[in-house]
Design a binder for these strands. Structure first.
Lengths: 245, 245
DNA sequence: CGAGACGTTGAAGGTCTTCAAAAGCGGTGG
DNA sequence: CCACCGCTTTTGAAGACCTTCAACGTCTCG
């Protein structure tokens, strides 16, 4: 994070060629020409952990790809009930093209580095760059699929299944991000409350389920927010595995 | 339905110009040229009520726009738990472009007429018709937004709020479909069980909530599957209205 | 070290589910 | 036409699961 700031100050934007997420991001399928357009337009942004990047209804001036860190998309209601609708992790795209108003809250869960574009400029690029457009559609369809798989969990799973599902979900995401990574150690930088927002449980229930999963030997907690998966097969089984393929 | 079959046999496909959903469907923004391509490629399909159009994992040979009727996208698990992820109503697009395998079950809730395309042909059209592609992206983004709004309901709403939400949802959809339509009468051709799949409740709980909403004077049931909205304001209020704008 | 946020655990209570029975509705065939 | 069957719906009672309320423990950081 200090590196990035220095880099920005020095005016040396990291090259796309060196980008960690170029093979999974919005730019993954673009031609050299399209990439050069993107490279010219991009601007890095940082958001500190805990910062609300946008409240539902806000204009979102900058859209773009998460490079590092995690953001959460969610909503809340007057009485305080909250629900996380999805997470944005490295490679994911933040913001809706073609509509500047954010439909939901977006919050930086950890520190975030964004490879961003002013939203009007990105919209223009989208129109003149067909492969970028196609990738956008593909990613949106994937997200829709993921959102639907999530519904089964929200609506029909027990508390234990929900927590197991969450762990499997993040484990798979972590692995997808770094294919070489096959560790059983999961970093989960979320408070119990935020986990509850995610799977629609109270933080007390989340806590209880964690202690039971530990007691049953499926997982172990190494440090705050660091989980060791002791029995992945059973964890998957208990998550009601058929979903989110 | 007999009409349609005869029409098909006679080779007289209804013209796009006369189409009821042309202003909301996938073709809504296309140029004359793109429309002519679509018109040449289109083929009508009918599915009877109750028919499973595709099971999760099936190849979906035909994709396209729902012209009349309702389809449900959902999933189920070995133990019988089921969840509906979304409905397809006139104007909605059925099937995922670029991937022939259906990720979820698709079932015809009522009789359906589909303005369809063989999936490879549609994919090709999508590549050469930029406005069609843009519309596809727009519709997918809308669906994603709707799916996320739905999550708040699944995760955080009480049984009563869920049923109220469902009624408001279908009322709004019905009105959007036919702008002139401002009736307080809602046709809801779903069994209690299917409603339960939708909002993640058992059919018994659905039934109980309906009788309470009737008892409280918010709604009335005219006939099987026909609901009169007696107090729309309160129904909206009780649905926890901020969602699905 | 103290304050504040986060986490754990217990007990009580509420909401929804499960199990069960009966009634309503629609279609079919005698 | 009515009796009968299956499917849907309603309603009740019991029970499970999660939440709520409350207290205490733990970690981190000024």
């Amino acid at each position: 994070m200090r590196d990035t700031i220095q880099t920005l100050l020095a005016g040396e934007l990291p090259k796309c060629a060196l980008c960690q997420i170029k093979h999974i991001g919005i730019c993954a399928n673009s031609t050299e020409e399209e990439l050069s357009w993107l490279e010219d337009a991009k601007l890095y942004r940082r958001y500190d952990a805990g910062r609300v990047i946008a409240f539902a209804g806000d204009r979102l001036e900058v859209v773009g790809s998460i490079m590092t860190g995690i953001a959460a998309i969610g909503g809340s209601r007057e009485d305080g009930r909250r629900q996380t609708y999805g997470v944005l992790m490295p490679g994911d795209f933040m913001g809706r093209p073609g509509r500047a108003i954010a439909p939901f809250d977006i919050e930086a869960v950890t520190d975030i580095e964004l490879c961003g574009f002013k939203s009007e400029i990105f919209d223009n690029l989208l129109h003149k760059a067909p492969l970028l457009h196609a990738r956008m559609l593909e990613m949106t369809l994937d997200e829709l699929e993921a959102a639907r798989a999530w519904m089964m969990m929200l609506g029909r799973k027990s508390a234990r299944e929900k927590i197991a599902s969450l762990l499997v979900f993040f484990l798979d995401r972590q692995r997808r991000l770094d294919e070489s990574f096959n560790s059983k150690i999961l970093r989960l930088p979320l408070t119990r409350e935020r986990i509850g927002d995610f799977v629609a449980l109270t933080f007390e229930t989340v806590s209880r389920q964690f202690t039971r999963l530990k007691r049953d030997g499926l997982i172990d907690e190494l440090g705050r927010h660091t989980i060791s998966i002791k029995d992945e097969a059973r964890l998957r089984e208990e998550s009601g595995a058929d979903e989110w393929g």
